Simulated assay, not measured.
Amino acid sequence: MRRTDILACEVCGRLPHPRRTRLALAKLAAVFPVELALHALVLHYELPYLATVLLLTITTTILVIWVVEPSAMRMLGAWLHGPELRHRAHVHSADQLWRIRVRIDDRPGRLEMLAKQLAHRRANILTVHVHHLENGVLDELVVATPAEITSHILESAITRAGGAVVGIWPAAALTLVDGQTRALSLAGRLAADPEELPLVIAELLGAHYVPSAESADASGVVLEIDAPPMTFVRAGEPFTPAEIARAHRLTDLALAVTRQG
């Protein structure tokens, strides 16, 4: 397996386009020796002018396009994609990201106590979203930790801070995009095609869309939207008031775009 294979697109299998300067230098390094050798060979035999032009044109084109350039791109692949490979290495060696949902009492100092307990475990809080519920507060955090920190260690820190764990999940960098920005991006997609409403809401909520025929068998936390009737299910993770409100606003947007169409 080549080093560059980790950069290949999961869908089409192609590598990203190299930087222009590196690509130009690689092609020059591949083509120049071939051009030099062919010109020296043709001049040595002193062929007629027309024969020289045709021979150089045809031979160079065939060798460069189908032989030399592809081979050089494979041989110099690690250098061509050096910046991307270094960036991927940095990503792989970066801290582990976690998304945490925790219930805590709505009292002064509780969030500070939670932050201290996480800091003792070398967990750096990157984002915090506070959702006020009828029976307390649900905090949603994204934290970065060293690779050796596990979900059990984080759960212990939350328990010591007096919180109740709702869920702890490994996260990706995309999690750092705030909910409002994500909702606006999905709204733009919905405005272009209102038929994507169920899929857009499912992506927004990180839930599964359940067709009406299967809604009776749905297991997990269920969210139902009346107009149009839709059911979404998420395992072990309650929907927050903010998430429910965003889902309804997206529904309103889809209906408005449909009416205008």
Score class of each variant (00 low, 15 high):
residue 195 E to G: 00
residue 154 L to K: 00
residue 122 R to I: 03
residue 164 A to N: 02
residue 92 H to L: 14
residue 124 N to E: 11
residue 135 N to Q: 08
residue 130 V to C: 00
residue 132 H to C: 14
residue 163 G to K: 06
residue 153 I to R: 10
residue 176 L to E: 08
residue 93 S to E: 09
residue 193 D to I: 12
residue 106 D to K: 14
residue 158 I to Y: 12
residue 128 V to H: 05
residue 109 G to P: 15
residue 170 P to E: 10
residue 139 D to Y: 07
residue 202 A to N: 08
residue 95 D to M: 14
residue 117 Q to D: 11
residue 153 I to C: 10
residue 133 L to V: 13
residue 169 W to Y: 08
residue 115 A to H: 14
residue 136 G to L: 05
residue 182 R to A: 09
residue 197 L to C: 03
residue 176 L to A: 07
residue 94 A to R: 01
residue 184 L to V: 08
residue 151 S to R: 06
residue 113 M to F: 04
residue 183 A to T: 14
residue 169 W to G: 09
residue 122 R to H: 02
residue 107 R to L: 11
residue 183 A to V: 13
residue 180 Q to A: 15
residue 174 L to S: 00
residue 140 E to D: 06
residue 96 Q to N: 15
residue 186 L to C: 03
residue 110 R to N: 05
residue 194 P to G: 03
residue 129 H to S: 07
residue 162 G to V: 02
residue 163 G to N: 12
residue 133 L to W: 03
residue 107 R to G: 05
residue 155 E to N: 02
residue 194 P to N: 07
residue 119 A to P: 02
residue 173 A to L: 08
residue 161 A to M: 09
residue 110 R to E: 01
residue 115 A to G: 13
residue 114 L to D: 12
residue 141 L to Q: 01
residue 165 V to D: 11
residue 93 S to I: 07
residue 146 P to V: 04
residue 118 L to C: 07
residue 113 M to C: 13
residue 113 M to I: 11
residue 108 P to F: 15
residue 199 L to N: 09
residue 161 A to S: 10
residue 104 I to R: 14
residue 141 L to K: 02
residue 117 Q to L: 09
residue 134 E to R: 07
residue 202 A to R: 02
residue 176 L to S: 02
residue 115 A to D: 01
residue 116 K to R: 10
residue 105 D to V: 08
residue 115 A to Y: 14
residue 126 L to H: 09
residue 131 H to M: 11
residue 176 L to R: 03
residue 125 I to F: 00
residue 116 K to C: 04
residue 155 E to A: 10
